Amino acid sequence: MLSIATWNINSVRLRIDQVLRVLSEQAPDVLCLQEIKCQEHQFPAQALADLGYVHQAVHGQKGYHGVATVSRLPFREISRHDWQDNGEARHVGVEIEGSGLVVENVYIPAGGDVPDREANPKFGQKLDFLERMARWADSLDRPTLLVGDFNVAPLECDVYDHKALLKVVSHTPVEVEALGRLGDAHGWVDLGRRFIPAPERNYSWWSYRSYWRQKDQGRRLDHMWASPDLARQATGHRFVEETRRWDSPSDHVPLVTEFDL
C-alpha cells in the first residue's frame, strides 16, 4: 500500500506545524507541497526529516510559488519543467524507487483576475502553460501520478455557483477546455471524481473571506490525476477539510490517495 498526498500550503515556513500535524494524522508516504514561498536553503528540511520524511526534492524561489516533494520512501528527482518559460519554480518530478511510479508535482499559474489574454498577460501565460503541459503529457509512457494546484475547477459541480463563475478566472470555458486537452493528452483519470463522483461536493479551496463568513463558496482547484493503468491500482481518495478550520490555515486543503502497489 502506498499513500500520496498533495497540498497547496501557502507558505511552508509559516505553516510547518500544520504540515507536521497532517503528516502525523494522515501518515502519507509521500507529500507534494505547492506554493512553499521560500528558497531551497530556507525549506524546513530538518523538521520534516525528524518525522521520517528524509527524502526531499525542493524547487523553490524567493517569496513566491515553489514546490516540494517529501517522502519516507527513497526517490530520485528526475525533472524540473518550466512550462511557463519564465524561470518560476512550479514543478518537480520524482521517481519512487522500487515502484517505477513517477510523481509529478505542479503548481499551475492562477492566471490573474481578468480572463482575457490581451488585457491580462498572466491569463495568457496560464493557457500557454497548460498547452505546453499537454504536449509533454502526450509523450508519457510510464505510470505517472500528476498532482497539485491546477487552479482550474473543470466541472459545473466543482464550484459553488457555476453560472456566477463562468466569467471568473479558474472556471471559464477557455480554461476548462485547456485543462481538458491536458487530460486527453495522456488519458488521465481524475481520481477526485473517480472516488467522489459528480455532482458530490468535493471542494479543495475557499477564499479566506468567504470561509470566514461560513459560506461554503468553494472550488475544486486541487487535483490528483493518474495514468490509466495506475488509476486501476488506486484504492481510496479523500480530502482533509478540517485543516481549513485550523488557526491561520492555508486556503487549500490536502488531498490523499492510496494505491495498492
Rank of each mutant, 00 (worst) to 15 (best):
V159W: 00
L261R: 03
P44V: 04
L166F: 09
P173I: 09
F75M: 14
P154N: 15
R132F: 10
V67H: 01
P74A: 15
P173E: 07
A134W: 07
P115R: 05
L155T: 01
R219N: 12
F239I: 11
W206E: 10
D85M: 09
A57E: 00
G98D: 09
R80G: 08
Y211G: 10
S248F: 11
V159R: 02
L165I: 06
V174G: 02
Q18N: 09
T69Y: 05
P28M: 11
V19L: 15
R238I: 03
N86K: 04
E175P: 08
K126A: 12
A89L: 07
R193C: 05
S79D: 15
E25D: 13
E77S: 02
P28Y: 11
A153G: 11
D229I: 09
G187I: 11
V147A: 07
E175R: 05
W136Q: 14
P109T: 01
P154I: 14
A185E: 03
T6Y: 15
S227E: 15
L31G: 06
H55G: 09
D158H: 15
H91P: 00
D260S: 14
K215N: 15
F259R: 12
G66W: 02
P121L: 00
T69N: 09
L165R: 06
A134E: 02
R21Y: 14
V58N: 02
Q34S: 10
I196L: 11
H41N: 03
D113I: 04
Q61K: 01
H81A: 05
A27L: 07
L145S: 13
R142E: 15
I96C: 01
M133T: 03
E97R: 06
V102E: 09
I16C: 15
A134T: 05
D184N: 04
H91L: 00
Q233P: 05
R132E: 13
D251Q: 07
L230M: 14
S11C: 00
W225V: 12
R194A: 15
A49S: 07
G236A: 13
K62G: 05
P121A: 02
H55N: 12
T235K: 12
S207F: 08
Q217P: 14
R193E: 08
D251H: 11
Y160C: 00
S139Y: 04
C32Q: 08
H55R: 08
R13P: 06
D17R: 13
E35R: 06
E200D: 15
Q233D: 06
F75I: 12
M133K: 05
A231D: 05
D229N: 09
W205G: 03
R76Q: 13
E131V: 00
P121D: 01
S207P: 02
I196K: 07
E104R: 15
V103M: 04
S210L: 13
V30Y: 02
M1S: 12
Q214E: 13
A47G: 13
G112C: 11
S139R: 04
Y64P: 04
V58Q: 00
N105W: 04
R209S: 13
R220T: 09
L14C: 10
V106E: 00
V114Y: 06
